[in-house]
């Protein structure tokens, strides 16, 4: 306990570092996945390559990826950007499939009715397809957010500071409180982001509550 009280400044700093890695990655994964999912949903022949292809990203072991990325991106080995990029890719591996399935699940009858009302193809996408796929996409995004926040701890191994640094330091120097603080803060951050996602879902999709 003493250790934690004596190190609140460092814990807070690493928490911010951790958020700075994982939040942009979650956002980027979402923003990149949705257009890919739309493509997969609209162009049937592309569906399997896109969905399975991005899904395979998850099979790439994370450590080598962290090492290969600097070479591809031309960044320094300790650049936090590597971690953000790697986390984005892992997020996409989950999110593309989830978003594509969400779009596939939009009721064909409702889409047909909308077309018959005279929605243009794009008008219908923005006002019908996307909102109706929203709840299922949100469910996928929640998984991505939790998994990204947890995965971001790995960056510490590469010397990119995050809550994972509390694990590495703690193990090296035999400070259990440090490891514990890392675990607790990671879980807390994941829970907070999840809560925020659920709340914004309620706000943006008030109609979905009773249906879920």
């Amino acid at each position: 306990m003493d250790w934690i009280l004596a190190n609140t400044g460092r814990i807070a700093e690493l928490t911010l570092d951790h958020a700075a890695l994982s939040l942009p990655a979650v956002l980027a994964a979402f923003l990149l996945s949705v257009p890919l999912a739309v493509l997969a949903n609209r162009l049937r022949p592309l569906r399997e390559p896109i969905v399975s292809g991005t899904g395979l990203l998850y099979a790439v072991p994370s450590l080598p990826l962290f090492i290969v990325l600097p070479i591809i991106l031309g960044t320094g080995i300790r650049d936090p950007l590597n971690a953000v990029a790697a986390l984005t890719l892992f997020g996409m591996a989950l999110m593309v499939r989830s978003a594509a399935e969400a779009l596939d699940a939009v009721s064909a009858e409702v889409r047909l009715a909308a077309a018959a009302q005279g929605y243009s193809s794009w008008g219908r996408f923005w006002t019908v397809d996307l909102p109706l796929a929203g709840p299922a996409m949100l469910a996928g995004l929640r998984v991505v957010s939790v998994s990204t926040i947890s995965l971001a701890t790995v960056s510490a191994v590469l010397g990119v500071p995050s809550l994972g640094s509390l694990f590495t330091d703690g193990f090296q120097r035999g400070i259990m409180e440090s490891v514990l603080a890392g675990v607790v803060m990671t879980v807390v951050m994941a829970l907070i982001l999840d809560l925020l996602l659920v709340l914004s879902g309620r706000l943006l999709m008030p109609w979905a509550r009773r249906r879920a």
Binding site: E109, V110, L112, A113, A114, A116, Q117, G118, W207, R211
Partner: peptide, 18 residues
Amino acid sequence: RLRRSIGYVMQHSGLLPH
């Protein structure tokens, strides 16, 4: 444009649930 000028009613109402 044609569809906007013609009323359409279907079996399971097809209302937008959101």
